[in-house]
Every structure is written in structure tokens, then in C-alpha cells.
Design a protein around this nucleic acid. Structure first.
Lengths: 194, 194
DNA sequence: GCCAGACAGTTAGCCTCCTAATGAAATTCG
DNA sequence: CGAATTTCATTAGGAGGCTAACTGTCTGGC
């Protein structure tokens, strides 16, 4: 389930040594990169274990969370959201919101339906479409699971002060923005070895 | 290939609103958590795309990198490492170093061997063991690929100053340490909903 | 010297993700 | 009106993780 990395990150002096062989290797950039991947992975693992203990994968959890929003349009309306703006309901909307392909979403909804967390109903207006909805069991699972999930996340971040959290987030956002800048040119930046 | 997340992170005021419903939800902790996962994922995606463009996965890349160390014992010796300390060579050592199971390593070595990047040879002393080695093609791939890979990583981190990189790393290390503290107790902290 | 156990590598079966191709329904447009 | 295009969901097949079980080899205690 992890992104797969080295078990032990290379020590900084190893990076310095490697930089002698590869002039393109920026040791402090590589160090930050490796720690970012590693930390994201470890944090992911904790919540993933938590989810697996309840027999649910991250992907399936994401779908349930998206559907939870959809299933409470009245609450959303009360809270100030535009009345008509419900969350995603069709597999295509869910796939878009979750950032996976529709084919993947079909598989996720398959297993969620098999396990009784959601139902699939044909759309009366457009017979190509399906409408996915949380069942009572699905809602119950979230109600029962979420408090613990939030506690785990709070426990992980407990080690950082409010100031440190803000600082971390602002550094991460900077990296995200840089990735966004790089992405459109990926084809060019990538083809170094071709 | 990503860990699957929301396409758009919830805005902070949504977290505040959600915290009203779930007292266990710490908005700033959740924000830091989501950004950590998201950023790790995006950074991963960039390098993963880079690798995929060369028809190699992150897992396979990791194996090649581990083997590169093993295949240069003379260089390592020259550089001050103890002469006998070669890198991992057997599937079990590779699995341990990469942090995957031996079964997974079998699969990775299978495809790497199929594609001509590595060879498998029986160990003459212990007939249970195999010795995995980079082929000339595997070495050539790395020689050709690594400079671009390092450039991409440098480009991502270009947005942060040396000071910011150090600060980011130290915040990430704090989180890693917290995760390490939490892990042994995972069974307990997890069973909130049972 | 031999047998029980440990250990290396593989196999088999499952899950989640992907891409590509398919079939059915809706829409667009000549 | 009907053909081409688009859009929906799904299926098929592949890759890389995992666990569990198996095979063959070594080793250590009797």
C-alpha cells in the first residue's frame, strides 16, 4: 500500500558524495524530496491501517465521504450552501471528485455495493446514468468511524504547535504551486534521457 | 498511481463547520494532514510520470538504485566504505532494503529480468539463494535516466530556499517521529469504533 | 548421522489502481 | 429524420502491492 521507498533514507553525507558523481543532484533538494515522500507515506500508512482494521480502503473511504455530502442536501442547505448544489452522485461525478478514472470508480462502487454500504439506482431521466447513494449501513459506518479517524489525525499532528502547522502548510503549498507550474511542461522537462 | 484523495481539498471554513459536528476534528491538524498527503502525492506523481515515460515504475526504479550500489563495490571501496560491505544482492536483502515483502520483490525482479535490466544467478555457496545483478542495459538506463530525474527533483524544490528546505525537513522529521511513537499503540488507538 | 525447524525463493489468490475497448443512450447537425 | 459524435457505465487485461502456503536447502540438537 505504500509508495515504496527505501527503508532507510540515505544520510546527508551520502547525498553529498553522490552529488560529486551527478552534478544535477542537489543534496538539500533531494533530502527535502525524500522526507516529503517518506512522511506522506508514513502518515498515509497510519490512517490506512486504521481504515483496513475496519475493512475499508482509502479509495472506498473517499467515496463514502463524498457520498455523505451528497446525502445531506438539507443540512447543506441549512448551512448556507445553495439548495441545488448537491454533492456528486453519479459514478462519473464521483470519479471526477475523487481524482480516479470512471473505470476505477465502477470497481469501488461494486465492492461498496457488495458490502452494503451504497446502492446503485438507475437515473429515471437519463438511462445511461446511475445514481449512487449511501445506505443506512454506510451512514452508520461513517458515524461510528469518523471520530476515531479524526482522533488519529489529531494525534499525529499533536507534535506540532499551531504555528508550526501553519508554517508546514505554507511550505507545502509552495511546493504544490511549483509542481503545478512544472506539470504543464512535464513532457519537456521529462524527456531528458530520450 | 496516486493514493487517491479529494481533487479539491476542503476549504478551511468547511473544516471549521465540520468540527462543529465532530468535536474530535481538529481543523488545523486536518489541514496539515491533508496538505501533507496531497503534496507527497503530487511530488510523487511528477517523478512517477517521469519514470513511466521511460517504462519503469517507482518500485522497479528503487530496485535498480539498490542494485547500482551493489554493482560498484570497487567504487564504494575506493570511497572509503568497508571493502566487504556490498549493497543488497539477494531478493530477500532487496526486499528488506526496499521495504516490501519477498513475494513482491520476486515479482519486481521477474519483470526487470524479463525486460533485460537485471539477471538472476544461483548462489554457488547456498543453493537456496539467488544473486540479482544489473545488466549493462540496466546500468545504461540509470546512467541515462538519473540526471533528468535529479533535475526534476531540483526543479520542484527550486521554489524553496535552503533555509526553508531545512525548516520543512525538520517539521517533517517531527511528524515522522510522532508517527513512530503512535505506531506501537496502533491497535489501541485504532479501535475507537469497535 | 538424522530429523525438526528455520530460512530463501516462489507460487497462488486477492485487492486496488490503471488504460483501452465495448455497448447503450443521448445529443448534434446536415 | 437519421448518421455521426459524445457521454455513460462497464468489462477485459495488466501492473504492483499484500498474505498465506509451498518447495527446496541448510543447520543444530539429539
Amino acid at each position: 500500500m505504500p509508495h515504496l521507498l527505501l527503508k532507510d533514507l540515505p544520510r546527508y553525507d551520502c547525498l553529498l558524495k553522490a552529488a560529486k558523481e551527478f552534478p544535477d543532484l542537489d543534496p538539500s533538494a533531494m533530502e527535502a524530496f525524500l522526507h516529503l515522500l517518506r512522511t506522506g507515506d508514513e502518515v498515509f500508512s497510519v490512517t490506512d491501517h486504521n481504515l483496513n482494521a475496519h475493512n475499508i480502503s482509502h479509495g472506498r473511504f473517499g467515496v463514502l465521504m463524498l457520498l455523505r455530502r451528497s446525502c445531506q442536501p438539507r443540512i447543506a442547505a441549512l448551512m448556507g450552501d445553495a439548495a441545488g448544489v448537491a454533492g456528486p452522485r453519479t459514478p462519473a461525478e464521483l470519479a471526477e471528485a475523487a481524482g480516479v478514472t470512471r473505470a476505477t470508480m465502477t470497481g469501488l462502487v461494486d465492492t461498496l455495493e457488495r458490502d452494503g454500504f451504497v446502492t446503485r439506482e438507475p437515473d429515471p431521466d437519463d438511462r445511461r446514468m446511475m445514481s449512487v447513494r449511501l445506505t443506512a449501513k454506510g451512514e452508520g459506518f461513517l458515524r461510528e468511524f469518523l471520530p476515531g479517524h479524526f482522533k488519529v489525525i489529531g494525534a499525529i499532528m499533536y507534535t506540532l504547535t499551531e504555528t508550526e502547522r501553519k508554517r508546514l502548510v505554507s511550505l507545502l503549498v509552495k511546493v504544490q504551486q511549483q509542481v503545478a507550474i512544472l506539470n504543464p511542461y512535464r513532457e519537456h522537462t521529462v524527456s531528458v534521457a530520450s
